[in-house]
Nucleic acid binder design. Structure first.
Lengths: 107, 107
DNA sequence: AATAAAAGACACCAAATGGTTTCGAATAGG
DNA sequence: CCTATTCGAAACCATTTGGTGTCTTTTATT
């Protein structure tokens, strides 16, 4: 299921899954969390959450640090910039459309 | 493979595929294109491209119109706003980080 | 009227995805 | 030292995904 850790995972694919977006959200609210504190937020088992975290790590959206027997995860938001850059190209299109619609409504 | 056309497709899933992002890009550059003009941009066959367009339609990123024997597709960028909204929450995180890094470098 | 072009519908397939359970290794604590 | 906790790795499984080829229908063109 997983690529080798050193292989880069597509950021767009990484954020496509709702579980992974929720993981990103939870990690945004706290500096660092071990796996066993992340797991109870979800219905699925620990291993499944761990796999989602691995996919986020492959996209470098999440960083990893071992501390004793715990494995702590933290958010690294930078790769999301790529999505933002991609979107910025299309922003002008929907803004144009919104402007046109606004003009029509004002007439 | 496909959901019923009236079922809403997740925008994040729709943009996760590179072929679909390229379709979005091509359609951004032209008002409207029939399937047989979109197909030669890709290595895959017509049916595959058609399916990708269907997924984009289910996410309402692409609109569809039949004109004679042609089937014309055009971009509808509005749903991308949802991605932008999602990103905007995390923007402050990477900007903070960038600022911290900048300060360190300036010392 | 006959033919060619365009596209949708469908059956099919291999590979990827998202989950599970089981096992073993490392660490913490009584 | 023994036991419990935490986690990763691996095998496994069902479903989804991304592609193919074939067939039919509709529409243009000659």
């Amino acid at each position: 299921m997983l690529k080798k850790t050193d292989e880069k995972r597509d950021v767009f694919v990484a954020i496509a899954d709702p579980t992974r977006r929720q993981l990103i959200r939870i990690l945004a609210d706290s500096k660092e969390l071990p796996l066993h504190e992340l797991t109870p937020h979800f219905q699925m088992g620990r291993t499944a959450v761990s796999k989602h975290l691995m996919i986020l790590r492959e996209a470098d959206i999440v960083r990893h640090r071992k501390s004793g027997r715990e494995s702590k995860y933290r958010l690294n938001p930078e790769p999301l910039q790529e999505v933002k850059d991609w979107l910025s190209f299309y922003e002008k299109f929907w803004k144009e459309r919104a402007a046109i619609l606004k003009n029509i409504l004002e007439e």
